[in-house]
Design a protein around this nucleic acid. Structure first.
Lengths: 112, 112
DNA sequence: TTATCATATGAGTATATAGAAATATATTAG
DNA sequence: CTAATATATTTCTATATACTCATATGATAA
């Protein structure tokens, strides 16, 4: 048996990433620091929506912030999101190859 | 901008793993092939519950099955779950170190 | 066939989450 | 101070999901 606490923590981190909108935000942050307005522009999501998703990412410490003037700049806390997406991208690619299904862009996912 | 389809697929895979019960099942399967009864015993979850979680994992092709007699044996389809959990485990460990919080067992998570 | 074992599914309930719209808070500019 | 800008939060609704209990399906054994 594995300790329940570790599983719960891992599950929470995965869950924080397991949303297309949040992946989109993480993807943008792979390009470097961004403030909320930048992210709204880049993703096309509403400001409220971006703000809420950022909160989820912050709570799981996947991103961290710094304030400059009245803007809040977000950045990736670690390489984790990029690495995870790289792994899954390769996995999807491999599957696609074996399934002879054409899927593109996984390689470029998260700027890998 | 990244293609929406890739983000959605990655999100779905992450979501399938983003649950403590399913991580527990994946963990068990890291020890090798198991049938449903084995998994019920190892995890302590109800049979119906195990069956339902396995369906989610199957639908995302994280596990595959083979039938023997009237038993269904499940196995990991790839190393992906183990790799993901390894990454997150190391990330949690790193954070724990820098936060001087004691967290144990991430290294042993998923039999890494 | 009928009984039994292994697995899967359906119904019902409780909880969680995504997103829109409106509003609140906080910082800066004038 | 007031106005404007940037970000965060609340409220609401719709949808999804985890779980339990009961039942169904499917394979084997007697």
């Amino acid at each position: 048996m594995i300790d329940q606490t570790s599983l719960t923590m891992i599950a929470r981190r995965l869950k924080a990433m397991a949303d297309p909108s949040r992946l989109s935000l993480l993807h943008a942050l792979c390009g470097g620091e961004r403030n909320v307005t930048d992210l709204v522009t880049e993703t096309g999501f509403s400001q409220a929506n971006v703000s809420k998703h950022l909160r989820v990412l912050r709570e799981e410490e996947l991103v961290s912030t710094r304030r400059d003037r009245n803007m809040v700049y977000y950045r990736l806390t670690s390489e984790l999101p990029r690495e995870i997406c790289g792994l899954i991208g390769r996995s999807l690619e491999h599957q696609a190859r074996t399934e002879r299904t054409v899927l593109s862009l996984y390689r470029r996912t998260m700027h890998e």
